[in-house]
Design a protein around this nucleic acid. Structure first.
Lengths: 115, 115
DNA sequence: CGTTCATATGTTTATGTATTCATATGATAG
DNA sequence: CTATCATATGAATACATAAACATATGAACG
Protein backbone atom coordinates (compact mmCIF):
# COMPACT_ATOMS: atom_id res chain seq x y z
CA UNK A 1 0.00 0.00 0.00
CA UNK A 2 1.29 3.47 -0.95
CA UNK A 3 2.67 5.70 1.73
CA UNK A 4 0.38 8.59 2.59
CA UNK A 5 2.42 11.74 2.23
CA UNK A 6 1.68 15.43 2.52
CA UNK A 7 -1.80 16.76 2.27
CA UNK A 8 -4.08 13.91 1.18
CA UNK A 9 -7.50 14.61 -0.30
CA UNK A 10 -8.16 11.47 -2.27
CA UNK A 11 -11.35 10.55 -0.41
CA UNK A 12 -12.84 14.02 -0.70
CA UNK A 13 -11.75 14.31 -4.31
CA UNK A 14 -13.34 10.97 -5.18
CA UNK A 15 -16.59 11.98 -3.55
CA UNK A 16 -16.79 15.35 -5.25
CA UNK A 17 -15.94 13.80 -8.57
CA UNK A 18 -19.09 11.77 -8.41
CA UNK A 19 -21.13 14.88 -7.62
CA UNK A 20 -19.78 17.18 -10.32
CA UNK A 21 -21.86 17.44 -13.49
CA UNK A 22 -20.22 16.28 -16.70
CA UNK A 23 -17.40 18.32 -18.00
CA UNK A 24 -19.44 18.88 -21.13
CA UNK A 25 -22.25 20.66 -19.31
CA UNK A 26 -19.81 22.87 -17.45
CA UNK A 27 -18.09 23.68 -20.70
CA UNK A 28 -21.39 24.61 -22.36
CA UNK A 29 -22.18 26.80 -19.40
CA UNK A 30 -18.85 28.61 -19.66
CA UNK A 31 -19.41 29.03 -23.39
CA UNK A 32 -22.78 30.61 -22.74
CA UNK A 33 -21.33 33.15 -20.32
CA UNK A 34 -18.49 33.83 -22.72
CA UNK A 35 -21.08 35.28 -25.11
CA UNK A 36 -22.16 37.80 -22.48
CA UNK A 37 -18.55 38.57 -21.68
CA UNK A 38 -17.92 41.06 -24.44
CA UNK A 39 -18.76 44.74 -24.27
CA UNK A 40 -20.02 44.99 -27.83
CA UNK A 41 -22.34 42.00 -27.48
CA UNK A 42 -23.57 43.28 -24.11
CA UNK A 43 -24.34 46.67 -25.66
CA UNK A 44 -26.20 45.01 -28.51
CA UNK A 45 -28.29 42.91 -26.14
CA UNK A 46 -29.05 45.94 -24.01
CA UNK A 47 -30.14 47.88 -27.10
CA UNK A 48 -32.62 45.14 -27.84
CA UNK A 49 -34.15 45.38 -24.36
CA UNK A 50 -36.34 48.23 -25.60
CA UNK A 51 -37.39 46.94 -28.99
CA UNK A 52 -36.29 45.06 -32.05
CA UNK A 53 -33.79 46.89 -34.23
CA UNK A 54 -32.30 46.47 -37.68
CA UNK A 55 -28.58 46.06 -38.16
CA UNK A 56 -27.83 49.57 -39.31
CA UNK A 57 -29.79 51.09 -36.42
CA UNK A 58 -27.61 49.11 -34.01
CA UNK A 59 -24.47 50.20 -35.85
CA UNK A 60 -25.45 53.84 -35.57
CA UNK A 61 -26.51 53.51 -31.97
CA UNK A 62 -23.24 51.93 -30.92
CA UNK A 63 -21.09 53.93 -33.32
CA UNK A 64 -19.52 50.85 -34.86
CA UNK A 65 -19.16 49.50 -38.37
CA UNK A 66 -21.93 47.42 -39.88
CA UNK A 67 -19.47 44.58 -40.31
CA UNK A 68 -18.50 44.46 -36.65
CA UNK A 69 -22.14 44.42 -35.62
CA UNK A 70 -23.05 41.74 -38.15
CA UNK A 71 -20.27 39.50 -36.93
CA UNK A 72 -21.40 39.82 -33.34
CA UNK A 73 -25.07 39.38 -34.23
CA UNK A 74 -24.08 36.13 -35.84
CA UNK A 75 -22.45 34.95 -32.63
CA UNK A 76 -25.53 35.95 -30.66
CA UNK A 77 -27.83 34.23 -33.13
CA UNK A 78 -25.79 31.03 -33.29
CA UNK A 79 -26.12 30.84 -29.53
CA UNK A 80 -29.87 31.48 -29.60
CA UNK A 81 -29.68 34.72 -27.66
CA UNK A 82 -31.22 36.75 -30.48
CA UNK A 83 -33.39 35.89 -33.44
CA UNK A 84 -34.36 37.89 -36.52
CA UNK A 85 -37.07 38.44 -39.05
CA UNK A 86 -36.84 39.85 -42.55
CA UNK A 87 -38.90 42.72 -43.87
CA UNK A 88 -37.88 43.44 -47.44
CA UNK A 89 -34.21 44.35 -47.45
CA UNK A 90 -34.18 45.07 -43.77
CA UNK A 91 -33.54 42.46 -41.09
CA UNK A 92 -34.78 43.09 -37.59
CA UNK A 93 -33.11 41.47 -34.60
CA UNK A 94 -34.72 40.87 -31.23
CA UNK A 95 -34.00 39.04 -28.00
CA UNK A 96 -34.73 35.36 -28.48
CA UNK A 97 -35.55 34.48 -24.96
CA UNK A 98 -36.57 35.92 -21.63
CA UNK A 99 -33.62 34.17 -20.00
CA UNK A 100 -31.38 36.72 -21.63
CA UNK A 101 -32.97 39.51 -19.64
CA UNK A 102 -32.88 37.48 -16.44
CA UNK A 103 -29.25 36.53 -16.77
CA UNK A 104 -28.21 40.11 -17.41
CA UNK A 105 -30.36 41.44 -14.59
CA UNK A 106 -28.90 38.89 -12.18
CA UNK A 107 -25.40 40.01 -13.14
CA UNK A 108 -26.40 43.63 -12.71
CA UNK A 109 -27.65 42.92 -9.20
CA UNK A 110 -24.35 41.37 -8.25
CA UNK A 111 -22.52 44.50 -9.39
CA UNK A 112 -24.77 47.00 -7.68
CA UNK A 113 -24.97 45.19 -4.35
CA UNK A 114 -21.23 45.02 -4.24
CA UNK A 115 -20.38 48.71 -4.16
CA UNK B 1 -30.73 71.17 -44.17
CA UNK B 2 -29.10 67.84 -45.03
CA UNK B 3 -30.82 65.57 -47.48
CA UNK B 4 -32.35 62.54 -45.88
CA UNK B 5 -30.89 59.55 -47.67
CA UNK B 6 -31.21 55.82 -47.29
CA UNK B 7 -32.41 54.25 -44.14
CA UNK B 8 -32.61 56.97 -41.50
CA UNK B 9 -32.72 56.09 -37.81
CA UNK B 10 -31.45 59.28 -36.22
CA UNK B 11 -34.57 59.91 -34.15
CA UNK B 12 -34.72 56.35 -32.86
CA UNK B 13 -31.01 56.28 -32.21
CA UNK B 14 -31.15 59.54 -30.27
CA UNK B 15 -33.98 58.25 -28.15
CA UNK B 16 -32.33 54.95 -27.35
CA UNK B 17 -29.08 56.69 -26.58
CA UNK B 18 -30.74 58.47 -23.73
CA UNK B 19 -32.15 55.22 -22.42
CA UNK B 20 -28.98 53.12 -22.52
CA UNK B 21 -27.07 52.89 -19.24
CA UNK B 22 -23.54 54.30 -19.21
CA UNK B 23 -20.99 52.52 -21.24
CA UNK B 24 -19.08 51.97 -18.03
CA UNK B 25 -21.84 49.92 -16.43
CA UNK B 26 -22.26 47.78 -19.51
CA UNK B 27 -18.53 47.23 -19.63
CA UNK B 28 -18.45 46.19 -15.98
CA UNK B 29 -21.28 43.81 -16.68
CA UNK B 30 -19.46 42.24 -19.61
CA UNK B 31 -16.34 41.95 -17.47
CA UNK B 32 -18.31 40.10 -14.82
CA UNK B 33 -19.66 37.57 -17.30
CA UNK B 34 -16.21 37.21 -18.80
CA UNK B 35 -15.12 35.67 -15.50
CA UNK B 36 -17.78 32.98 -15.80
CA UNK B 37 -16.85 32.43 -19.42
CA UNK B 38 -13.92 30.09 -18.84
CA UNK B 39 -14.21 26.36 -18.32
CA UNK B 40 -11.56 26.18 -15.62
CA UNK B 41 -13.08 28.97 -13.58
CA UNK B 42 -16.55 27.49 -14.04
CA UNK B 43 -15.30 24.12 -12.81
CA UNK B 44 -13.69 25.75 -9.81
CA UNK B 45 -16.86 27.61 -8.92
CA UNK B 46 -18.90 24.46 -9.31
CA UNK B 47 -16.49 22.56 -7.04
CA UNK B 48 -17.11 25.15 -4.37
CA UNK B 49 -20.88 24.67 -4.57
CA UNK B 50 -20.55 21.74 -2.19
CA UNK B 51 -18.07 23.06 0.32
CA UNK B 52 -14.98 25.16 0.77
CA UNK B 53 -11.79 23.57 -0.55
CA UNK B 54 -8.08 24.22 -0.32
CA UNK B 55 -6.05 24.92 -3.42
CA UNK B 56 -4.47 21.52 -3.73
CA UNK B 57 -7.81 19.73 -3.33
CA UNK B 58 -9.14 21.77 -6.26
CA UNK B 59 -6.03 20.97 -8.29
CA UNK B 60 -6.48 17.26 -7.70
CA UNK B 61 -10.20 17.38 -8.34
CA UNK B 62 -9.79 19.15 -11.66
CA UNK B 63 -6.57 17.38 -12.59
CA UNK B 64 -4.68 20.61 -13.18
CA UNK B 65 -1.49 22.12 -11.86
CA UNK B 66 -1.49 24.06 -8.62
CA UNK B 67 -0.18 27.08 -10.48
CA UNK B 68 -3.00 27.14 -13.01
CA UNK B 69 -5.56 26.89 -10.23
CA UNK B 70 -3.88 29.60 -8.18
CA UNK B 71 -3.89 31.97 -11.12
CA UNK B 72 -7.58 31.45 -11.72
CA UNK B 73 -8.43 31.67 -8.03
CA UNK B 74 -6.76 35.05 -8.05
CA UNK B 75 -8.99 36.20 -10.89
CA UNK B 76 -12.05 34.91 -9.06
CA UNK B 77 -10.99 36.57 -5.82
CA UNK B 78 -10.14 39.91 -7.43
CA UNK B 79 -13.66 39.92 -8.82
CA UNK B 80 -15.20 39.03 -5.48
CA UNK B 81 -16.65 35.74 -6.64
CA UNK B 82 -14.68 33.72 -4.09
CA UNK B 83 -13.05 34.54 -0.77
CA UNK B 84 -10.59 32.62 1.34
CA UNK B 85 -9.48 31.96 4.86
CA UNK B 86 -6.17 30.72 6.16
CA UNK B 87 -5.70 27.75 8.47
CA UNK B 88 -2.02 27.25 9.12
CA UNK B 89 -0.32 26.61 5.82
CA UNK B 90 -3.55 25.74 4.10
CA UNK B 91 -5.83 28.28 2.45
CA UNK B 92 -9.48 27.44 1.96
CA UNK B 93 -11.53 29.05 -0.78
CA UNK B 94 -15.28 29.39 -0.80
CA UNK B 95 -17.99 31.15 -2.80
CA UNK B 96 -18.12 34.79 -1.78
CA UNK B 97 -21.69 35.47 -2.58
CA UNK B 98 -25.02 33.82 -3.21
CA UNK B 99 -25.31 35.70 -6.49
CA UNK B 100 -22.67 33.38 -7.88
CA UNK B 101 -24.98 30.39 -7.47
CA UNK B 102 -27.94 32.30 -8.88
CA UNK B 103 -26.10 33.53 -11.94
CA UNK B 104 -24.84 30.05 -12.73
CA UNK B 105 -28.22 28.45 -12.13
CA UNK B 106 -29.89 30.98 -14.41
CA UNK B 107 -27.42 30.14 -17.15
CA UNK B 108 -28.00 26.46 -16.61
CA UNK B 109 -31.74 26.93 -17.01
CA UNK B 110 -31.23 28.64 -20.33
CA UNK B 111 -29.20 25.71 -21.58
CA UNK B 112 -31.56 22.99 -20.44
CA UNK B 113 -34.73 24.63 -21.67
CA UNK B 114 -33.20 25.04 -25.07
CA UNK B 115 -32.62 21.43 -26.03
C1' DC C 1 -31.27 42.34 -65.88
C1' DG C 2 -28.66 45.98 -63.82
C1' DT C 3 -28.43 49.07 -59.92
C1' DT C 4 -28.90 50.15 -55.25
C1' DC C 5 -29.46 49.33 -50.51
C1' DA C 6 -29.17 46.19 -46.27
C1' DT C 7 -26.75 42.67 -44.57
C1' DA C 8 -23.43 38.77 -44.46
C1' DT C 9 -18.99 36.61 -44.78
C1' DG C 10 -13.88 35.52 -45.58
C1' DT C 11 -9.37 37.01 -44.35
C1' DT C 12 -6.00 39.44 -41.86
C1' DT C 13 -4.21 41.65 -37.92
C1' DA C 14 -3.78 43.07 -33.34
C1' DT C 15 -4.82 42.18 -28.71
C1' DG C 16 -6.08 39.46 -24.74
C1' DT C 17 -5.40 35.57 -21.89
C1' DA C 18 -4.89 30.58 -20.06
C1' DT C 19 -1.33 27.64 -19.11
C1' DT C 20 3.39 26.29 -18.12
C1' DC C 21 7.75 26.75 -15.94
C1' DA C 22 10.63 28.70 -12.66
C1' DT C 23 10.83 31.02 -8.55
C1' DA C 24 9.18 33.57 -4.42
C1' DT C 25 6.48 33.99 -0.13
C1' DG C 26 4.97 32.55 4.12
C1' DA C 27 3.74 29.42 7.79
C1' DT C 28 5.09 25.45 10.68
C1' DA C 29 7.99 21.92 12.73
C1' DG C 30 12.16 20.42 14.55
C1' DC D 1 17.31 29.40 11.52
C1' DT D 2 16.75 25.72 8.32
C1' DA D 3 13.92 22.54 5.86
C1' DT D 4 9.52 21.55 4.15
C1' DC D 5 4.92 22.08 2.66
C1' DA D 6 1.03 25.06 0.69
C1' DT D 7 0.33 28.67 -2.04
C1' DA D 8 1.39 32.83 -4.86
C1' DT D 9 3.56 35.28 -8.53
C1' DG D 10 6.42 36.73 -12.71
C1' DA D 11 7.60 35.80 -17.40
C1' DA D 12 7.14 33.34 -21.69
C1' DT D 13 4.39 30.97 -24.94
C1' DA D 14 0.54 29.37 -27.44
C1' DC D 15 -4.02 30.03 -28.72
C1' DA D 16 -8.49 32.45 -29.15
C1' DT D 17 -10.97 36.23 -31.00
C1' DA D 18 -12.77 41.21 -31.98
C1' DA D 19 -12.42 44.57 -35.37
C1' DA D 20 -11.14 46.28 -39.98
C1' DC D 21 -11.23 45.76 -44.79
C1' DA D 22 -12.69 43.93 -48.96
C1' DT D 23 -16.09 41.49 -51.13
C1' DA D 24 -20.30 38.63 -51.67
C1' DT D 25 -25.29 37.75 -51.25
C1' DG D 26 -29.89 38.90 -51.80
C1' DA D 27 -34.04 41.67 -52.07
C1' DA D 28 -36.57 45.55 -54.41
C1' DC D 29 -37.23 48.66 -58.08
C1' DG D 30 -37.19 50.69 -62.48
Amino acid sequence: MPEKKKHDHSALVDMLHRELPDEEHLCDLADLFKIFGDTTRMRILYSLFESELCVCAISELLGMTQSAISHQLRVLKDNHLVANRREGKTIYYFLADDHVRKIIEQGYEHLTEEE
